[in-house]
Design a binder for these strands. Structure first.
Length: 344
DNA sequence: TAGGCCATCTGGTCCT
DNA sequence: AGGACCAGATGGCCTA
């Protein structure tokens, strides 16, 4: 792309390198003032240093001892006025860059508010926000593509793909996951056909590997960090998870325990088109903010997690934290999503 | 203390 | 010429 090697460029250096020492000092001090203070009336010294550096390059061509005269246009002297102009230009450029980065951060903050995990006090890092957003978009796309209702576990799994463990915890907290619900210790409550998978679920480390991502912590997720263990059983919801090999490593490790403090929220309010097939499902309709489904190993490592036959994870309504703070925009977005899913 | 994250400065490149 | 964008460097802050 662009050359980042300072040695490659001579344009700005030719004009200003002479004051590089002062600039370095300014950099350390966080102010350009130090640079200006060292200027003499006749400030050629800096450029003399530059000439020496440039001559070093020429030495490769024309010998060791002889310092050939520099070719090309003669450098302008760094007068006080020029230095002043440089200083002003640099300050303006710095200010623009600051504003640009602030704009970027504002946009990132906006993004934080629309991904399904938002907390003013426990902000996602930039990179995690982008990763979560990517996963979220993918998950929503998958819903649109398949037209199928998701199960919560699969959804969370997809959301957390490639995220660090702290972020994974945060997402789980936002979604009010209560994973102990699904642990093998309740095997007596889990249908027999689930049990072997349950053992596997508990025996392995759940590991995401996303191409292009750094290895741990970003590339792995130990489910034990996500799940708060609590007696409960929605065994059927585990099935797609087991099938896609989501293991829990440690059922007893301390982990998320209810809502994070301060409370986190799930954005939007979103009901899937889903005809309850049982009284249980009627009682525990899956209603979440912007809720979506996802898969695990599609084109970019995701695969469908919720085949049409897959049991759905039904979350008790009381476990879904309401979100009072979402904006009008988010409510509109939520309504639109609802419309999409109720029409599909 | 090491590592992660961040803000800022800086110079290079491209574009208008 | 100047602005936008980018990536490298640096130092501060925080946390495990």
């Amino acid at each position: 792309m662009m050359s980042s090697d300072p040695q490659d460029s001579a344009t700005w250096n030719d004009e200003c390198q002479g004051s590089q020492d002062e600039l370095d000092t300014e950099k350390k001090n966080g102010s350009l003032e130090s640079m200006h203070g060292d200027l003499d009336d006749d400030d050629d010294d800096g450029f003399n240093r530059l000439d020496e550096d440039d001559d070093d390059e020429d030495d490769e061509e024309e010998g060791d001892d002889q310092k050939p005269k520099r070719r090309g246009p003669k450098k302008k002297k760094m007068t006080k006025a020029r230095m002043q102009r440089f200083k002003m230009r640099r300050q303006k450029a710095n200010a623009r860059e600051r504003n640009r980065m602030h704009g970027l951060n504002d946009a990132l903050e906006s993004l934080r508010k629309v991904v399904p995990c938002y907390s003013k006090t426990q902000k996602l890092s930039k990179i995690e926000t982008l990763r979560l957003a990517k996963n979220y978009i993918w998950a929503l796309s998958e819903i649109l593509r398949s037209g199928k209702s998701p199960d919560l576990m699969s959804f969370v799994q997809a959301l957390c793909k490639g995220l660090s463990q702290p972020t994974t915890n945060l997402v789980a907290g936002c979604l009010q996951l209560n994973p102990r619900t699904f642990l093998p210790e309740q095997t007596q409550e889990i249908p027999s056909h689930m049990q072997p998978a349950s053992a596997s679920f508990a025996a392995h480390t759940y590991s995401f590997q996303t191409p292009g991502l750094p290895s741990p912590p970003y590339g792995t997720m130990d489910s034990s960090h996500i799940f708060h263990v609590k007696p409960h059983s929605y065994g059927s919801a585990l099935e797609p998870f087991f099938e896609t090999a989501l293991p829990l490593t440690d059922c007893t490790s301390p982990s998320f325990d209810g809502p994070l403090s301060p409370p986190l929220s799930v954005n939007g309010n979103f009901s899937f088109k889903h005809e309850p097939s049982s009284e249980f499902e009627k009682n525990y309709a899956f209603t979440m903010h912007y809720q979506a489904a996802a898969g695990l190993a599609g084109p970019q490592g995701h695969a469908p997690l919720y085949p049409s036959s897959a049991p759905r994870c039904e979350i008790p309504m009381e476990n879904i934290m309401s979100y009072e703070g979402h904006t009008h925009h988010e409510r509109v977005m939520s309504a639109q999503l609802n419309a999409i899913f109720h029409d599909s």
